[in-house]
Nucleic acid binder design. Sequence first.
DNA 1: TTTTTATACGACTAAATATGTCTTATTTCA
DNA 2: TGAAATAAGACATATTTAGTCGTATAAAAA
Lengths: 142, 142
Amino acid sequence: MLRLSKKTEYALIALKDIALNSRIQLMTAREISENHQVPRDLLAKILQTLTHHSIIRSVQGAKGGYILNKPVEEITLLGLIEILDGPAGLMECSLPEPVNCTYLDTCSIRCQLALLNQKILAMLQGITLRHFLRNELKAVLG
Amino acid sequence: MLRLSKKTEYALIALKDIALNSRIQLMTAREISENHQVPRDLLAKILQTLTHHSIIRSVQGAKGGYILNKPVEEITLLGLIEILDGPAGLMECSLPEPVNCTYLDTCSIRCQLALLNQKILAMLQGITLRHFLRNELKAVLG
DNA sequence: TTTTTATACGACTAAATATGTCTTATTTCA
DNA sequence: TGAAATAAGACATATTTAGTCGTATAAAAA
């Protein structure tokens, strides 16, 4: 399946919200969840994961919440996907780590697909939260 | 997950084999399966599906097998993905058919991701079996 | 000090999807 | 008639994804 995970979708939605409020106040998981009808507990876990990776910063306790912890142009779509879903790659054998592909030596498509893989990953890495905030994706994708 | 399905991988491998032999003889599922260590029954079903969609043509009975039924430049990667895995799209809401996305109206990323979706689908549609046969993917992807 | 509101964390469940197998029927050639 | 092939669909398994729940911890406010 060639699809973004819900985690990544929710992360993008949340980060956009957080970014738009970062200079004003902290955003809570509850607020984001209610703003966009996203499952709260799941969103909370996503935000925790993003916190671990220093994408955002969390403040605990009452009046707590989340705030951005990185410049928006340093938060890439590929980065989010890899943080939330693990290493990205069109095929097992195009992942950074070598894998147990039992037919590597008789595989006739690996090299060609590797090129496509590189192309797509590069595209995803070129897309940042900044582009989402400014609706600039069209320009980036040219 | 941003990954090609095994079905699509196996289909590409098989089509490449079939194409390379199309002027000489029919290829059987068994041969392809043994050439590349691909599960035979699964491959058989994939080839049947491709037959239904007129990508290949089947000949039943002993001495039977499969042969290409379309010019290699008309067999696109996107076409194969859609035949084998169903409609492709980065998100549910970017599929051709409208879907039950409960938060469409509060979704802040749909429009931007739709652009990315279009870009990727266009790329996949631009890649054909011909490119795989001639190792031309690098040129196509620019 | 207690209550409220928030994040942290991990276990757990449920649903969906992907992958692979098996059985039976049918077709064709030798 | 037997062997070798596709056709078709049911079945089984494994993996991944999505979502939930309970408990702990932290901080502010009552």
